[in-house]
Amino acid sequence: MHQEIAAIPDGGVAVVLGTRPEIIKLAGIIAELGPKACVIHTGQHYDTGLSDVFFTERGLPAPQVRFAVGGAGRGGQIGAGLASLDEWFARHRPVAVVVQGDTNATVTGALAANARRIPVVHVEAGLRSFDKTMPEEYNRIITDHLSDLLCAATEGNVENLAREGIGGAAVIRTGNTVVEAVRAALPGPDRCRALLAERGLAPGRYALVTVHRPENTDDAAALRTILTELHRFPCPVVLPLHPRTLGAVRRHGLVDLLDGLGVTGPLGSAEFLGLAAHAAFLVSDSGGVQEECTVLKRPLIVVRRSTERPEAMRDFAVLVSPGPLISKTAAEWWKDLPGLHRRLARLESPFGAGDASRRIVAEIARRFGTR
């Protein structure tokens, strides 16, 4: 443990997180909770570019409690985090514990709270890929079945929970906090123009790409195929490299395939969203980008075997495995990008109106007495 507060405030809520997406999606809830929030960072993402910068960008205080589980495998992270959280919850009892999504930090927070009989609030409950090769699928299922308040973003998520016997008053449909997170972090027009100018990019004339999931980075053939396909795009490529991806590129001997691509380090949320909002199209294996593209009104190629966000696939995204469909889809979209962009601009995001954080915090207060 690196740092700890003396005590949790009266009626306080512990917010357990460990990765960049969790920080982004929980920022609105932390802000709404105000002094009632005690943020516990497990350290799953410990690189400054994947963690601290996102607290700074959103004007949030640093986490009050930090652990150091990063660098270990999945079992090691969950085991170390569970031991640390259990010890902390034995000395500090919040009225509820909030977790988000499907990371190792998510399931760790839920398990530790449940063991101490502290109510668990799961933000983004009910997502299912129905793909048991994904560790995240187990994290989602376990967390949902341990939770006392399940905040489902969409009607499809509510239905997934009902099929598993989870329903009634425990489940509320809230929309997804990603909507307000994107709106809050998206830079204004002047800053967006500057971001593009700094990189020599023209609006609507480049692709923004992220790759980080194990199914793509641990598989040398898959990673080689994805990078090769990027060279076939009809436009420049901006490729922010996750540390895991950079390590995989080096390990698999694929460094030469980065030549000619616009490789950068990890980007802050505002910079990424500014570039994404003006890209011709996006390519990613990220779950969060599948949601963000529906707010930004940009088409997305999802390079994965499966997705837990079918809502995005209806209008904004297509799901493809590593292969020639990546560049073929890009070429097809390129033929009439203005028309595609106009069509998407008229559509509403399936993930809600942008008030999820407020609704979730109000429900926590109503049920668990944080006021």
Results as ranks from 00 to 15, higher is better:
Gln3Val: 14
Val16Asp: 11
Pro21Glu: 08
Pro21Lys: 04
Ile30Phe: 04
Cys38Arg: 13
His45Asp: 10
Gly49Gln: 15
Asp52Gly: 12
Asp52Trp: 07
Asp52Cys: 00
Val53Glu: 01
Phe54Met: 01
Phe55Ser: 03
Glu57Ser: 01
Leu60Trp: 00
Gly73Cys: 09
Gly76Val: 08
Leu85Val: 03
Phe89Glu: 09
Ala90Glu: 14
Arg93Ser: 12
Val98Gln: 05
Asn104Leu: 06
Asn114Glu: 07
Asn114Leu: 13
Arg116Pro: 09
His122Ile: 05
Ile141Phe: 05
Leu146Thr: 08
Asp148Gly: 11
Cys151Met: 14
Thr154Trp: 06
Glu159Trp: 11
Leu161Ala: 07
Arg163Thr: 15
Gly165Tyr: 10
Gly168Ile: 06
Thr174Pro: 12
Gly175Asn: 00
Asn176Pro: 08
Glu180Gln: 12
Glu180Met: 03
Gly188Tyr: 03
Pro189Glu: 15
Cys192Pro: 00
Leu195Lys: 04
Leu201Val: 04
Val209Asn: 01
Glu215Leu: 03
Thr217Ser: 09
Asp219Tyr: 04
Ala220Thr: 08
Ala221Leu: 11
Ala222Ile: 01
Leu230Asp: 11
Phe233Pro: 05
Cys235Asn: 03
Pro240Gln: 05
His252Val: 13
Val255Ser: 15
Val255Lys: 14
Val263Ile: 06
Pro266Asp: 08
Leu267Tyr: 09
Phe272Asn: 02
Leu273Met: 12
His278Pro: 00
Ser284Arg: 11
Gly288Arg: 09
Met313Cys: 11
Ser321Met: 13
Pro322Thr: 07
Ala330Val: 12
Leu347Ala: 06
Gly352His: 01
Gly354Leu: 10
Arg359Met: 09
Ala365Cys: 11
Arg366Trp: 07
Gly369Thr: 07
